[in-house]
Design a protein around this nucleic acid. Structure first.
Length: 269
DNA sequence: AACCACTCCAACCGCGCGATC
DNA sequence: TGATCGCGCGGTTGGAGTGGT
């Protein structure tokens, strides 16, 4: 048996919202709030709409703090950064962009940014090529993420704190979003990535990193026996660099363990 | 002018999760 | 402890708009 519908679809209006409906919903929410119950709201407000539809309309369009219009380059870079870090977590990505909604960001990514990325990836500066055929580099920069890795990554910061240079680098971040990926040396592969997007103060002095753009990048790879890691540094030409490194044996095993926004930590703990 | 292909984005859908009973 | 409910999320769809032929 399937899930019960959230509303009686036969008795609710669907499709585009009329200006009158918008006005009714806006006036009601501004006057009474949502009451914490979107399902009951349309009836109280006198709308023949599904509660979910009302919620969506309010959140994506009617809210007073919504920012409409084109995305800035800075917003582009934040989206790239976060998408590479955590994939299609649109709600979180949107939360880092004041006035933007998850739907906006998602649409923008699917219609513009993805194409922009693919279009320019052909001229990106690849300093190292993918050698393992099991990895699909067409999906870059959407790194595969093992959700189970988050717990370890955020609960154990000892590796981070034992590395003053890395810590220093992570503290000097532009957006508060610079990340480091640590991979388990016990699995005979390890690497560390430090990348910054837009930050002018990041310091990666521990290694002579390959500077592929104004944005510095460092890629560390261990020389453990049997190590099969491959690293990439990329500059997609958006006014910022997108630096990617990863290591793997059979399974991609990427664990963010940098200093990140507390809300990210809360989300994955 | 008509048709077609493509883009963009608002809206819908179904699912997972947490809260509550 | 399991069932139910509502919220929030990501994926998908459909239609309006636009550009090319």
């Amino acid at each position: 048996m399937g899930r019960a519908p959230c509303c009686d679809k036969a008795n609710v209006k669907r499709g585009p919202w009329s200006p009158d409906e918008d006005e009714t919903l806006k006036r009601y929410v501004e006057t009474h709030g949502t009451g914490g119950n979107w399902i009951a709201l349309p009836q109280k407000a006198g709308l023949r709409r599904c509660g979910k539809s009302c919620r969506l309309r309010w959140l994506n369009y009617l809210r007073p703090d919504i920012k409409h219009g084109g995305f800035t380059e800075e917003e582009d870079s934040i989206i790239y950064n976060l998408y590479g870090e955590m994939g299609s977590r649109w709600s979180f990505i949107a939360s880092q962009l004041p006035g933007r909604t998850d739907n906006d960001v998602k649409n923008y990514w699917n219609t513009k940014l993805k194409k922009k990325l693919l279009g320019s990836s052909g001229k990106s500066n690849l300093t190292t090529t993918i050698t393992n055929p099991t990895y699909n580099n067409n999906s870059l920069p959407c790194l595969p993420i093992n959700p189970d890795a988050y717990d370890l990554a955020f609960s154990d910061s000892s590796q981070l704190t034992q590395n003053p240079t890395m810590l220093s680098s992570l503290n000097n971040i532009g957006y508060g979003l610079t990340q480091a990926y640590g991979l388990d040396p016990s699995l005979q592969h390890s690497s560390m990535i430090m990348s910054d997007f837009g930050s002018k103060s990041s310091s990666h002095s521990a290694e002579n990193s390959s500077n592929i753009s104004d944005s510095s990048a460092a890629y560390f790879a261990s020389s453990l026996p049997g190590n099969t890691e491959t690293g990439i540094m990329m500059d997609f030409g958006f006014g910022f660099s997108y630096d990617i490194g990863f290591a793997y044996d059979d399974d991609i095993d990427i664990k963010p363990q940098g200093v990140v926004n507390q809300s990210v930590i809360n989300q994955y703990q």
